[in-house]
């Protein structure tokens, strides 16, 4: 396989799972909508760098999820260390987003309140992975994943209720 062919195969795979990459970028970082495209590009570069290590033993979505999640965790750590000043451009961006980011904020608030392990389980479950795949990726058994999903749902329901009360 030539370099060009490899690149084409990779791009096709990315295009197939681009929304998954974007969602992981949005849920694992506290970035605004304008920053999401940058994070997406970072994730794609990281995936391209580790594309040679993908042997095709697992589903491409599982591999993409794992690499993107790791990249976003690393990125959020870096962001935490950096001190960024809010410029006038950022303020305009935030103002223009308006109510569109309400849903995102609401879900982010709820998901951020979850422990990291539970967050992984929940996001993967929501993205349509079955408990077996989730367990394979996170090193958990089928039963554990199923139990966790039920508990996370209860927890999230309570958190969202509190959040709504605070908003009102």
């Amino acid at each position: 396989m030539t370099h060009q062919e490899k690149q084409k195969a990779f791009v096709a795979m990315i295009k197939q799972h681009e929304r998954l990459i974007l969602k992981v970028c949005a849920l694992y970082t506290n970035s605004c909508r304008s920053e999401l495209s940058d994070l997406y590009q970072d994730a794609v570069c990281a995936l391209w760098e580790s594309y040679d290590s993908f042997k095709g033993q697992s589903k491409p979505s599982t591999w993409i999820y794992s690499v993107t999640r790791y990249t976003m965790i690393k990125s959020s750590r870096r962001h935490r260390l950096e001190t960024t000043s809010i410029s006038s451009v950022d303020v305009e961006n935030i103002a223009s987003e308006g109510n569109d980011s309400d849903v995102l904020d609401e879900l982010r608030q709820a998901i951020a309140a979850l422990p990291p392990d539970d967050r992984d389980v929940f996001v993967m479950w929501m993205e349509g992975f079955n408990p077996g795949e989730i367990g394979e990726t996170l090193g958990l058994s089928y039963g554990t994943v199923a139990t966790r999903i039920t508990r996370i749902k209860i927890k999230l329901r309570r958190l969202l209720k509190d959040y709504k009360e605070v908003v009102r």
């Binding site: 495209s37 590009q41 609401e106 879900l107 749902k153």
Partner: peptide
Amino acid sequence: DEIEKLYGRFSKEMENIPLPSEDELMQML
């Protein structure tokens, strides 16, 4: 339930965000 609905709304919102095309991705790589 409510959480799934909320996640569905979130997914729809994510679909509205423009992403680079295949050519752009190739150039980026």
